[in-house]
């Protein structure tokens, strides 16, 4: 049971108020029709599964209903930061770890 800081409500709430919505920063291609099947398949189905730092999209489903990003360590379950949609994370895995 995570304790998650909602960057819109500006306080910690219980995990049961939130839903996870997959990996963050997966932008929909601006011109889907121009994508090859491979490119489209990567957008649709391929996701990172890191041991360590991971950026996830969550929604405060029972609260303000806003989506936001969570940087979370998949090994310790520590939440390193939360940040709004459109913003970039400040905590990132170093290149070696992410490989």
């Amino acid at each position: 049971m995570f304790h998650i800081y909602c960057p819109h409500c500006c306080e910690y709430r219980e995990e049961e108020e939130f839903h996870a919505a997959g990996q963050s920063h997966i932008a929909r291609p601006l011109d889907p029709d121009a994508c090859t099947d491979k490119e489209w398949g990567e957008f649709m189905y391929f996701r990172a599964n890191p041991r360590g730092i991971h950026h996830e999209l969550w929604v405060h489903a029972a609260g303000c209903r806003k989506y936001f990003n969570v940087t979370r360590d998949t090994q310790t379950y520590e939440i390193n930061e939360v940040y709004k949609v459109g913003e970039q994370p400040t905590v990132v895995a170093n290149a070696i770890q992410s490989k």
Binding site: A21, A27, L57, V59, R65, K66, Y67, V85
Partner: peptide
């Protein structure tokens, strides 16, 4: 409703 919101908020 969530579907509409996620597209509006993120895309």
């Amino acid at each position: 409703l969530s579907w509409l919101e996620i597209y509006h908020q993120t895309e």
